[in-house]
Lab assay of single mutants.
Amino acid sequence: MNLTVNGKPSTVDGAESLNVTELLSALKVAQAEYVTVELNGEVLEREAFDATTVKDGDAVEFLY
Results as ranks from 00 to 15, higher is better:
1 M>Y: 05
1 M>T: 05
1 M>F: 13
1 M>N: 01
2 N>T: 14
3 L>Y: 02
3 L>Q: 02
3 L>K: 00
4 T>W: 11
4 T>K: 08
5 V>M: 05
5 V>P: 03
6 N>V: 01
7 G>R: 05
7 G>D: 04
7 G>I: 02
7 G>S: 04
7 G>Y: 03
8 K>M: 11
8 K>V: 13
9 P>E: 07
9 P>C: 09
10 S>A: 15
10 S>C: 15
10 S>K: 13
10 S>R: 13
10 S>G: 07
11 T>Q: 11
11 T>M: 11
11 T>S: 10
12 V>M: 08
12 V>H: 05
12 V>L: 11
12 V>Y: 08
12 V>N: 02
13 D>C: 15
13 D>S: 14
13 D>Q: 14
13 D>T: 14
13 D>E: 14
13 D>F: 15
13 D>W: 15
14 G>E: 05
14 G>D: 07
14 G>W: 14
14 G>P: 05
14 G>Y: 12
14 G>R: 08
14 G>S: 09
15 A>E: 07
15 A>L: 10
15 A>S: 09
15 A>I: 12
17 S>I: 11
17 S>C: 11
17 S>G: 09
17 S>Y: 11
17 S>F: 13
17 S>D: 06
18 L>G: 02
18 L>I: 10
18 L>N: 01
18 L>R: 04
18 L>S: 03
19 N>M: 05
19 N>Y: 06
19 N>E: 02
19 N>F: 06
20 V>H: 01
20 V>K: 00
20 V>A: 02
20 V>C: 04
20 V>F: 06
21 T>V: 07
21 T>I: 07
21 T>M: 08
22 E>K: 07
22 E>I: 04
22 E>C: 08
22 E>W: 05
22 E>S: 08
22 E>L: 07
22 E>D: 08
22 E>G: 08
23 L>A: 03
23 L>E: 01
23 L>C: 04
23 L>H: 01
23 L>P: 03
23 L>S: 01
24 L>A: 02
24 L>F: 04
24 L>G: 00
24 L>Y: 00
24 L>P: 03
25 S>I: 15
25 S>E: 13
25 S>M: 13
26 A>H: 11
26 A>V: 12
26 A>G: 05
26 A>E: 07
27 L>R: 00
27 L>M: 07
27 L>G: 00
27 L>D: 02
28 K>S: 10
28 K>M: 10
28 K>E: 08
28 K>D: 10
29 V>E: 05
29 V>I: 12
29 V>K: 02
30 A>Q: 12
30 A>V: 12
30 A>F: 12
30 A>I: 12
31 Q>L: 14
32 A>D: 09
32 A>H: 10
32 A>P: 14
33 E>P: 08
33 E>F: 09
34 Y>N: 10
34 Y>I: 14
34 Y>K: 09
35 V>E: 04
35 V>C: 07
36 T>F: 08
36 T>R: 10
36 T>W: 10
36 T>V: 13
36 T>G: 06
36 T>S: 09
37 V>Q: 02
37 V>D: 00
37 V>M: 04
38 E>W: 15
38 E>F: 15
38 E>P: 00
38 E>A: 15
39 L>C: 04
39 L>K: 03
40 N>Q: 00
40 N>L: 01
40 N>H: 01
40 N>V: 02
41 G>F: 04
42 E>L: 13
42 E>G: 06
42 E>T: 12
42 E>M: 13
43 V>W: 08
43 V>N: 05
43 V>E: 06
43 V>H: 07
43 V>G: 05
43 V>C: 08
44 L>H: 02
44 L>N: 01
44 L>D: 02
44 L>K: 03
45 E>R: 09
45 E>D: 13
45 E>S: 11
45 E>T: 08
45 E>I: 09
45 E>G: 09
45 E>H: 12
45 E>N: 12
46 R>C: 06
46 R>E: 06
46 R>V: 06
46 R>N: 06
46 R>F: 08
47 E>S: 11
47 E>A: 11
47 E>Y: 08
47 E>D: 14
47 E>I: 07
47 E>T: 10
48 A>N: 13
48 A>P: 01
48 A>G: 06
49 F>S: 03
49 F>D: 00
49 F>H: 11
50 D>G: 11
51 A>G: 10
51 A>F: 14
51 A>M: 13
51 A>S: 14
51 A>N: 13
51 A>L: 13
52 T>F: 06
52 T>W: 05
52 T>S: 05
52 T>M: 06
52 T>G: 01
52 T>A: 06
53 T>D: 08
53 T>V: 13
53 T>K: 11
53 T>H: 12
53 T>W: 15
54 V>F: 04
54 V>S: 03
55 K>G: 06
56 D>C: 06
56 D>P: 08
56 D>N: 10
57 G>L: 02
57 G>E: 03
57 G>R: 04
57 G>Y: 04
58 D>L: 02
58 D>H: 02
58 D>C: 02
59 A>S: 14
59 A>N: 12
60 V>A: 02
60 V>E: 02
60 V>P: 04
60 V>H: 03
60 V>G: 00
61 E>V: 14
61 E>C: 12
62 F>N: 02
62 F>A: 03
62 F>Q: 02
63 L>S: 15
63 L>V: 13
63 L>P: 04
63 L>K: 14
63 L>N: 12
63 L>Y: 15
63 L>A: 11
64 Y>Q: 08
64 Y>E: 08
64 Y>I: 11
64 Y>M: 09
64 Y>D: 07
64 Y>G: 08
